[in-house]
């Protein structure tokens, strides 16, 4: 958005572009300053919090309804799948621990063979 064009009275397009670039530059500066003010921080923090607070009952209701419906039709809920995924991660960690022990054994074995 820098003003690359030099002033040329016979080039109206270039002049318009230069004006646009200057306008954008000023706008960008003003907006960056605006989002850096205390008032902006306070307003966005307040708006976000109010939205989250007021929408919470509806979200809870929807979640409850979905969970009940899934239970009625014998389908696992998100919580069920999440619990399963957590167990998989724990299993993976155990496997990684075993892999570490296996690597250590291999290293010791190589060292012993090398020493002999």
């Amino acid at each position: 958005m820098s003003d690359k064009a030099t002033f040329d009275p016979f080039d109206p397009t270039g002049m318009m572009k230069s004006m646009r670039d200057k306008g954008m530059e000023a706008w960008a500066k003003a907006m960056t300053e605006m989002v850096g003010t205390d008032a902006y921080s306070e307003a966005t923090g307040q708006m976000l919090d109010t939205w989250l607070k007021t929408s919470a009952p509806f979200r809870d209701m929807t979640q409850k309804l979905i969970s009940q419906t899934l239970a009625e039709v014998n389908l696992p809920s998100r919580e069920d799948v999440t619990r399963l995924a957590e167990r998989f991660t724990n299993l993976e960690m155990r496997l990684d621990d075993l892999d570490a022990k296996f690597d250590e054994c291999l290293k010791l074995l190589r060292e012993r063979v090398g020493a002999e």
């Binding site: 205390d38 921080s41 306070e42 966005t44 923090g45 976000l48 919090d49 989250l52 607070k53 919470a56």
Partner: peptide, 17 residues
């Protein structure tokens, strides 16, 4: 740092939601 340091910015509520 300015936005999230405002007392009205509630990271707990965002994560809970």
């Amino acid at each position: 740092v300015k936005w999230v340091s405002d007392p009205k910015f509630n990271a707990d509520r965002i994560a809970e939601t």
